[in-house]
Simulated scan of single mutants.
Amino acid sequence: MATVKSPLTESAQKTTGEALQGALVDLIDLSLLAKQAHWNLTGRNFKVVHEHLDEIVDLARQGMDDVAERAIAIGVNPDGRARTVADRTELPQLDAGYIADDKAVASVVDALAQIIGRFRERIAATDEPDQVSQDLLIGITAELEKQHWMFQAQS
């Protein structure tokens, strides 16, 4: 079986791999949270929030693909299985059923704030071991922060 030889030291690979895996779980769950809200949304601002939620889904999906591919590039297997995400997520889950637009916005604002905090920790953790992965995390964080600002403006 072929494996990818890491360009990083074993220690750097471990630290960076953990940061990337955590980012992957956050992004997968963010995409699921946003899609759940998108499907069940109600309220006066339905159309605007409905469409904006898809921007979050697109951002999360692109980010998760970039993070997973970076993990493989450094010889770490990404784990995006449903069980892994369910076991490791730190995001509060939405209630089942219809979701009022203001509650959806508040949930997304909260989820983004939590994820941004963890991404900033991962940025700090990867400063020494892998600045290439750090750069990827910085770029994703910038986009998450932009969406956080835009959703906050709706609340």
Rank of each mutant, 00 (worst) to 15 (best):
R88K: 13
W39P: 11
E55G: 00
Q13V: 02
A23P: 01
A100G: 11
I74T: 11
H52F: 04
I72K: 14
K146G: 08
I74S: 12
I28N: 15
A19T: 01
P92W: 02
S11M: 04
L24S: 15
H148F: 12
V85K: 10
V109R: 08
L8Q: 06
T89K: 08
L8K: 07
K146N: 06
A106H: 07
L59A: 08
I72D: 13
M1H: 12
N40S: 07
A34Y: 05
M1G: 15
L32S: 13
I72E: 13
Q13D: 07
N77A: 14
M64W: 02
T126G: 09
A68E: 11
D135M: 05
L27K: 08
R44N: 11
D110R: 01
A96C: 04
Q93T: 05
I56G: 04
A12F: 06
L33Y: 01
L41C: 04
V85S: 13
V85H: 11
R70E: 09
A142Q: 12
K146H: 03
L91T: 01
G139S: 10
T89L: 13
E69L: 00
I115K: 11
F119M: 11
E128H: 03
G97R: 00
W39G: 00
A104Q: 07
Q93E: 13
E121G: 01
G139I: 02
Q131Y: 02
D66C: 01
L41M: 03
S31Y: 01
M150S: 04
V108H: 10
N77C: 04
A34K: 07
V108F: 09
I138Y: 12
G139Q: 08
G80T: 06
A100V: 06
A82M: 12
R61C: 01
V132M: 09
L24W: 06
R61F: 00
I116K: 06
E121P: 00
T9G: 15
A19F: 00
F46N: 00
T42S: 13
D130N: 08
V4K: 15
G22Y: 03
L144I: 03
E10V: 06
K47D: 10
V57R: 11
A60G: 05
L30F: 00
H52A: 13
E143L: 09
A71E: 10
E55A: 04
R122F: 00
P92Y: 01
T15K: 13
A82P: 14
I99E: 11
L33D: 10
A96T: 03
E90Q: 12
Q36G: 14
V48T: 15
A125T: 02
I28R: 14
D135K: 14
L30G: 05
G17S: 05
T9N: 14
